[in-house]
Write a protein that binds this DNA or RNA. Structure first.
Length: 174
DNA sequence: CCCTGATTCGC
DNA sequence: GCGAATCAGG
């Protein structure tokens, strides 16, 4: 992705708004958070001096001659890249009436409805609830975004809505 | 382990 | 200039 003027402007704006690099990368799309951070530095934008959470105050620039690099050989162990093309379309016709029923059943129970984080499609990670909220055609559309447990695509609340056996559902309705 | 930003350096 | 790899910290 090229850093067009518009993308750079958006980067500046979002960075100024205090969004994290990864979130900015998600909104821009096609770039990693590292790219965003690198660009921020290159633009001489003010870093996050010392915010309460997650900022490195000031590191001692140490450069201990990492390792002799024989030409043509990389002696490094790649930990893990962070790139995920997002699950793609996940909305389907899934018996909307059933969902409505389930919602009614669960909400009438003692389940606490989670507070939505109103995440955009690109901001979803592997551990955020991907339950869609609102009309996909509307700009109000977003995702639950709550913490999903045990690698489930949904949070505890929406998991109950998503995976309800008929028997369970009947029981819940009673 | 999850995340954050910071820095280095090969491209 | 770009950004992955790496580092350092919460």
């Amino acid at each position: 992705m090229n850093w067009t003027d518009e993308r750079v402007e958006k980067l500046k704006r979002l960075w100024a708004e205090g969004l994290s690099a990864s979130q900015i990368a998600a909104q821009l799309g096609g770039v990693s958070r590292n790219a965003v951070i690198g660009k921020v530095h290159r633009l001489n934008l003010p870093g996050r001096a010392k915010s309460g959470g997650g900022t490195a105050p000031a590191r001692t620039p140490k450069r201990p001659a990492p390792a002799p690099r024989p030409s043509g050989f990389a002696a490094r162990i790649p930990t893990r890249a962070n790139a995920r093309p997002a699950g793609g379309a996940m909305l389907k016709e899934e018996g909307q009436t059933d969902v409505v029923e389930a919602v009614r059943a669960v909400t009438s129970s003692n389940v606490v409805i989670p507070i939505s984080r109103r995440l955009g499609l690109t901001e979803l990670t592997e551990r955020t609830c991907k339950w869609p909220i609102g009309d996909p055609m509307s700009d109000e559309f977003h995702f639950c975004g709550c913490e999903s447990l045990d690698s489930s695509p949904y949070c505890s609340y929406h998991a109950k809505l998503a995976y309800q056996p008929v028997s369970e559902r009947r029981k819940a309705e009673r």
